[in-house]
Nucleic acid binder design. Sequence first.
DNA 1: GGATAACATGTTGTGCACAATATAGTTGTT
DNA 2: AACAACTATATTGTGCACAACATGTTATCC
Lengths: 160, 160
Amino acid sequence: MKERKALDSEEDINNLLALDNQLCFALYAVNRAITGRYRPLLAELDLTYPQYLVMLVMWEADRKGDSPRVSSIGERLRLDSGTLTPLLRRLEQRGLLTRQRSSEDERVVTVALTDEGRAMREKASDVPLRLLCDLGVGPEQAVQLREDLRDLLSRVEGDR
Amino acid sequence: MKERKALDSEEDINNLLALDNQLCFALYAVNRAITGRYRPLLAELDLTYPQYLVMLVMWEADRKGDSPRVSSIGERLRLDSGTLTPLLRRLEQRGLLTRQRSSEDERVVTVALTDEGRAMREKASDVPLRLLCDLGVGPEQAVQLREDLRDLLSRVEGDR
DNA sequence: GGATAACATGTTGTGCACAATATAGTTGTT
DNA sequence: AACAACTATATTGTGCACAACATGTTATCC
């Protein structure tokens, strides 16, 4: 038999590494699994999940008559220009939106939907329901989890 | 005033798109926020988060005297060879582990820790606690959320 | 009004994530 | 033995994600 004390602290480390694995890894794995579930639905629109998120922001802004700047989109989605610039460029090349540098402030690039981008909104409107059905998660459970995640997000982002 | 009916269905679509945004987007955003929290801690070990996950699996296997094959690691982390092969190659180049093709079955590549890789475990042992403190999440809350996420994961992965 | 700081976006480089395909080895059937 | 089916890993290509740096712009302080 081994010593009791040394074994315990070893076990503690094992448990911590395992717990940690399961807490943050669960998040990591679920996130990839869910974007995997989106993939076939979004493939019908020829969009990736991050592209879909950008389109959601754009549809929302467009309804208010806004043409958001790149930084606004980044703020909303917590993505930086290194991610957004090439992503927006691809959507622009496909004719879903336009990017235009402001004449007032040359640093600013405003993004606007084209008619084609606006039209895609209808084709995308059934994605959320189809996904929720696909997941087999009840609405109240979904809301609860979303609240927990939002709470966690504010904690994680809170004190920098 | 606009028609009641048309406005309602428009609002429904808006709500769905917004709810969807918030549920799955919350997961997406929290995941990135948390790996961002890991980043400075893991930078001390010169590891990325996926590399850290692989090392966790390796430390766990090593304790049992195992030298897992690439596919076992991938199964555990839900990652495929396109992700793991270059990642493992980088860890091998740094001398943390070895990759060896099995002589019994030449298709199989087994991965084993080096002494250096084994030694890193101690330096990494305080990462989980430091992260939990950093997040400001209580243990019982963490356990609850982990359970919810594991439940969700089994749902999402369940029926393919 | 000229240095300087703060700002908005873009560029470059590294490292995942994953689909599609390739390669090579193994097993089973005839 | 020959061949097909299957398996394990590697390779290639596209698209994020983010850090570090570059470029040009505006504002501010003196």
